[in-house]
Design a protein around this nucleic acid. Structure first.
Lengths: 131, 131
DNA sequence: AGAATCCATCGACAGATGTCGATGGGTTTG
DNA sequence: CAAACCCATCGACATCTGTCGATGGATTCT
């Protein structure tokens, strides 16, 4: 509840209204941290690709697809991973990444909204030809 | 959709799969730009407050509420404004800000998800003593 | 008119961030 | 075992970002 708000038209000079925090600083910080992870075109594209992919995708494929070096892709993957959005799996030489299956609802809808913010390119409902 | 994917278990060394871009670079850039605006705890908190507020809120109230200087709050407001999320209105000495009423659906749901990503604090359903 | 208040803009600065090249560990092939 | 390949980590660097103090325009009160 935001508090005592003076009638918009007749405030007193030098008197500010007290705004009760609608959002705890900790929660704001947490949400912002997650949003920072999403707020990069490369990572967004990676997430969109993973969501649309029929199965796990390995780093080398991303390295080839984007105009970026391998360490950079690894760096982005590490961020996505530590944010809990993707998981990796090692198979021989390769390391495959995929989206986490069940994200907490609020995070899932945020991700969905972030990706849905974009013209969805095809019928992607997650029916992977999995491993 | 991701293209020619080698059966996950039998890839060839030195051969990367071609990933068709699920996301155009322009769209990724656009979405990332918007997400960057949201990816700051202060701005998130401001947006949450505006959403919960019964009416427009003036800069001085935010300046008083947060532990930040007035230029900093102005700076954040300018970012929110140029992102098209808020609008301002001048009344005498004061400048009031409020959320844009009708955002494009994808952006609205993104904003909603970002704010909804947070345990809506106490009974914040707009029980303000409004203006 | 003069003083006081509110706010946007500017310049400055520390810290965070994305990218790269180099290195090294781990795995498979020859 | 040696060579080839994949990938994570490290150090370096340029850029972006959040914050501040100072300044000046606009408006209102005395």
């Amino acid at each position: 509840m935001a508090a005592t708000e003076l009638p918009v038209l007749q405030r007193q000079r030098g008197v500010c209204c007290q705004l009760d925090s609608v959002l705890s600083p900790e929660h704001a910080e947490t949400a912002a941290t997650l949003l920072k992870v999403l707020a990069d075109p490369t990572r967004l594209s990676i997430l969109a690709t993973l969501r649309a992919a029929p199965g796990p995708v390995c780093i080398c494929d991303f390295t080839a697809a984007y105009q970026l070096g391998q360490p950079t892709i690894s760096h982005h993957m590490a961020k996505l991973k530590s944010a809990g959005l993707v998981v990796s799996e090692k198979r021989g030489i390769w390391i495959y990444y995929r989206l986490v299956g069940k994200l907490p609802p609020p995070i899932a809808s945020l991700l969905e909204a972030a990706l849905g913010c974009i013209p969805r390119s095809s019928g992607v409902d997650g029916n992977f030809r999995n491993a």
